[in-house]
Design a protein around this nucleic acid. Structure first.
Lengths: 150, 150
DNA sequence: GTTGATAATTAGCTTAGCAAACTAGTTTGG
DNA sequence: CCAAACTAGTTTGCTAAGCTAATTATCAAC
C-alpha cells in the first residue's frame, strides 16, 4: 500500500460505495412504496422535522439538501397525509414553521417500532460488528455531506 | 447495551442509514448531472457492462436490480451516447448481447481517473480507517441486498 | 405446426428532482 | 415613509428514472 496505490483504491472504494448506495436507495424506494405508503424522501423529511423541531421550509430544504420547490411538494404531501402542521412564522410573515403533529409522531413511532422495515429486517441477519460498521458508515456519509456546506 | 436495547438500536441504525443513503444518493444525482453528463443509474449500468462483459439486457436488469423496461431505457441512453454496442445473441434470437465499445471504455477510464468525482473527492478527506469502514459498508450493503434474491 | 412461455420493447403512469417565473412580505436608502 | 431591491414560498413546466400492462418476436414442447 503505497501512496500511489492508495489513490486508486480510493476511487475503487468510491465507485463500489456509489453502486451500493444507488442500488440500496432503489431497493428502499420499492420497499417504501409497498409497505408504508410514504416514500423515502417524504419519510426522511418527516424524520427531520421530528428531530429538529419546528422549522421553516427553507431550513428543511437545506437539511435535506433539496431545492425549495422540491420541499414545497414534499411538505404538501405530508400535509395531505395529515402528519404535520404549519403555524405562521412570528418572525417573518412570508414564512411558516412546520412541526410534526400527533398523527405524525405516531407515524414516526410506528416506523421506529417497525421490525419489518427493509434495512432493519436485513440488519438483523448481520453480526453486531457488521451492524456497527454500517452505523459508523452512516455517520461518515452524513459527515462528508456536511463538508459540502460551504 | 443489553439484548433488549439491541433491537432498538437496530432500528435506529436502520433509520440513520436510510437517511444517509437517501441523501447521499440525492447528492450523487446532483453531482452527476453537473459533471459527467451521465446520470448515476446510467453510469452504474455502464460500469456493470464493463465489469461483467457482454450481457443480455435481462441479465443486466437483474444485476442492477431494475425491471427490464427500465434497463431498456438506460441502454437506449447509453447507445445514444455511443458508449455501448449490441450484437445479436447467437443463442437466442429474441435477445442481444451488450458490450462496452471503445468510447465506453474511455469513458470508464476517465471516470476511474476522475479525482473530482463526488465520493472520491470526499473520501480523500477521511483517514484510512474511515475509508476502510465505508468500503466494508459497501460490501455489506451489497450482501444484504443479495439475500433478497429469493 | 400450434400453443404457451419468455426477451425485449412500447406506452402510459408516478415520484422526485430541477430552474424559471410569480406572489407576497421584508428591508433598506433617500 | 415610500419605492426599490431582496427574499420566502409557491406555481409551472421540464426531466430522469422507476414501475405495470400490453405488444411483438422468438423459442420450446408437445
Amino acid at each position: 500500500m503505497t501512496a500511489r496505490t492508495s489513490d486508486n483504491s480510493l476511487t475503487d472504494t468510491a465507485s463500489q460505495l456509489r453502486n451500493a448506495i444507488v442500488r440500496t436507495s432503489r431497493a428502499l424506494r420499492q420497499d417504501a412504496a409497498g409497505e408504508t405508503g410514504l416514500s423515502p424522501a417524504t419519510t426522511a423529511a418527516l424524520a427531520s422535522i421530528g428531530r429538529s423541531g419546528p422549522l421553516t421550509p427553507s431550513e428543511l430544504a437545506e437539511i435535506e439538501r433539496v431545492k425549495r420547490p422540491t420541499m414545497t411538494r414534499t411538505l404538501a404531501c405530508l400535509e395531505r397525509e395529515g402528519l404535520i402542521e404549519r403555524t405562521p412564522d412570528p418572525a417573518d410573515g412570508r414564512s411558516s414553521l412546520v412541526a410534526v403533529n400527533e398523527a405524525g409522531r405516531e407515524h414516526l413511532a410506528r416506523l421506529r417500532r417497525r421490525k419489518s422495515a427493509y434495512l432493519a429486517r436485513r440488519l438483523r441477519k448481520l453480526d453486531p460488528a457488521e451492524v456497527e460498521t454500517l452505523a459508523r458508515a452512516a455517520e461518515l456519509l452524513e459527515r462528508i455531506r456536511e463538508d459540502e456546506r460551504g
